[in-house]
Amino acid sequence: MKELSSPVGMRERKRAETHARIQAEAMRLFLERGFDAVTLDDIAAAVDVSRRSLFHYFESKEEIVFSTKAEFPRLVAEALGRRPADEPLMDMAENAMIEMATLHIPAQARNYARLIRDTPALRAGDQAKYEYVERLSAKVMAERKGLPENDLACRVTAATAVGIIKLAIEAWLTKGGPKLDVFIKDAFAALRNVAVVDHRRSSAKKTK
């Protein structure tokens, strides 16, 4: 005999479906008209819910946009957690970021990233998200290495990796073409090249 879904399970599923519809319709409107031109009433009408009901799912337009990136910190942390503990820190960060960009970038990610970049009201919140990813990444790398949570090398590596992600996304938006992971690889390669060149120059000065 087929088991019936519990009322709690049905409510949770219905809530998740409504949450997804609001997010999808709102992002469609934002991309079509621009973030500032869309009101909460517009979104409620598109989803056929009341404005009051809309607030049960999202408190603001900004929250809707950032909900599309809600999984980003967790995905980065999990990718770092899968890296070998004996892998050099910079390699650990690069490989985790490449995994995240290769496996977890949705089809509309470029359009969403462009919307955030071009909307002043969204940029501050986006920066806060990156700062959280930086702190979380440093913590996970320290755990993998068996180091204190505030280890300086892990914090520097995490800050560098997040900076590279931001630069890679900007290049991805500006130049188009290759997938995001290609720009990430190029940015890490550029960093390593700078380090090698600076080391050679420093060594040459010491031998003079």
Score class of each variant (00 low, 15 high):
62 E>A: 11
102 T>C: 04
72 F>H: 09
119 T>V: 12
67 S>V: 11
84 P>A: 12
121 A>P: 09
89 L>H: 03
88 P>K: 06
161 A>D: 04
127 Q>K: 13
57 Y>E: 08
73 P>K: 13
124 A>V: 05
169 I>M: 10
186 D>N: 09
72 F>Q: 11
93 A>P: 03
143 E>L: 11
142 A>M: 01
79 A>W: 07
114 R>N: 05
132 Y>K: 07
174 T>C: 12
58 F>R: 09
90 M>N: 03
167 L>I: 12
165 I>F: 03
159 A>I: 10
150 N>V: 14
75 L>I: 08
131 E>Y: 12
146 G>I: 11
97 M>Y: 06
90 M>R: 09
160 T>V: 12
161 A>I: 08
98 I>M: 11
99 E>W: 12
61 K>L: 14
54 L>V: 11
150 N>E: 15
155 R>I: 13
112 Y>C: 08
182 V>K: 00
150 N>D: 15
173 L>N: 09
168 A>F: 05
116 I>N: 04
82 R>T: 00
61 K>H: 07
69 K>N: 10
173 L>M: 14
158 A>E: 05
91 D>E: 14
85 A>L: 12
83 R>A: 13
68 T>H: 13
175 K>G: 06
109 A>P: 01
114 R>V: 02
172 W>S: 00
57 Y>K: 10
184 I>V: 05
107 A>I: 09
169 I>P: 01
123 R>N: 07
94 E>C: 10
156 V>F: 11
69 K>D: 14
151 D>M: 07
146 G>Y: 14
149 E>H: 08
150 N>L: 14
119 T>N: 01
152 L>Y: 10
93 A>H: 05
178 P>R: 02
67 S>F: 11
114 R>K: 13
